[in-house]
Design a protein around this nucleic acid. Structure first.
Lengths: 211, 211
DNA sequence: TTTTTATCGAACACAATGTCCGCTATTAAA
DNA sequence: TTTAATAGCGGACATTGTGTTCGATAAAAA
């Protein structure tokens, strides 16, 4: 991870990793097929950690008064908590391989609730897959910016900015007017109770897909 | 370009290029330092072509009744016109190098008018640099999607979708309310006359920076 | 004590990069 | 038309990086 931030993922050679980790060449290849697999496995650890924490959080909230979990906020919190690692994974110096992986993963997270939301509508100003692609790209680009600039704002502020930028547009894109209240409530700082349909795009109860 | 679409930029070797172009090894290195420089030079040709066309378009419009040029629409038109090349440059199979270059270029195009727009405002819900980063990433991601999916919609429709998705959010991000009319006018399909301030973000008269 | 397991380092084949040099067309100048 | 300059060709080469193999060594498990 340090090497990624130092010289960029693509430029790293296996020898660099060997020297830094003080490990023999054959030892490395006994564990990983190549550079990519090493990075992927590191990310997998973080991903399962995140999903376990979300599951725990969801369980604790289910008994409480507010059972909702804001996925985007939790993502910012999680990446901020492990910012040194995620800066390597999703930052400027990261590689294409892992960014594509992240894009797919986030799409899997955001697409189901979005699809559910537009299921009943017939014609949309913007097709769903475009909107989904847009949402994931935006989230990823905001995260990258945040991590690369040493997180100048708290996760909560980033979540707020993400919503401010994307929500009105998505609302227009899915041709919703019923959910106007959700956005207004959200903009006020906290959106509890009442308006669900649109806001629930990220207030998801099924955040852990492979389970 | 064909090789990029076939096997992805990163995987291409200089030998592949030599074989496909039926060119000697030393000939290649007499003209370009490496793979990157070859792609960059190809893109430079397209970029200057675009800027020249924009200049011509601007000159012809200046005499007419509507002197405005919609940069985003022109970008979609231009990339659509050379879609085979741009699919290699900005598509799924493209490399990180050129995408970063594109990002910088588009930022140079969109940042000045955006900065001009928020010059007078004191505090913003979302900082300008975040909004700029967001806008460029969104535009780039929509273009990539469009090219990779064989351009299922005309450039005009893509421009419309881009606006539908981003404009309301940007409006909220720069704390504008005066420009509400601009967005409404735009949403109607065509926004001529009247509302300028916000809409002019992309209706730019200084589209060719290096001049 | 014996066996299993993990690591090490050296060596190797292979692929790709970028450079060098001498040969040969083609083209432009003398 | 002859001559000189230019551009391209292709083979050879040093270098760097990749991924594999093998025998030796040390520590942990049986």
């Amino acid at each position: 991870m340090a090497l990624i931030v130092e010289q960029g993922y693509e430029k790293i050679t296996v020898q660099d990793i060997l020297d830094r980790a003080d490990v023999g060449r054959s030892t490395f290849y006994a564990h990983y097929r190549d550079k990519d697999e090493l990075l992927l496995s590191s990310f997998e650890h973080l991903r399962t950690l995140f999903e376990q924490q979300q599951e725990a959080l969801l369980a604790s909230r289910r008994s409480g008064s507010d059972p909702d979990v804001n996925i985007v906020l939790e993502l910012f919190r999680h990446t901020g908590q492990h910012h040194r690692l995620y800066r390597a994974i999703a930052g400027r110096q990261s590689g294409e391989m892992i960014l594509k992986y992240l894009h797919r993963y986030l799409t899997g997270l955001l697409l189901p609730p979005l699809g559910e939301l537009v299921r009943k509508r017939k014609s949309l100003p913007v097709p769903v897959d475009v909107t989904a692609h847009y949402l994931v790209s935006t989230l990823l680009s905001l995260m990258t910016w945040w991590l690369d600039n040493n997180m100048p704002y708290p996760a909560e502020k980033m979540d707020e900015m993400f919503r401010t930028l994307t929500m009105p547009g998505v609302e227009a894109a899915i041709g919703s007017n019923v959910e106007k209240r959700a956005y207004d409530a959200m903009k006020g700082g906290h959106a509890e109770g009442g308006a669900k349909a649109f806001y629930s795009l990220f207030i998801d109860s099924s955040c852990c897909p492979d389970k």
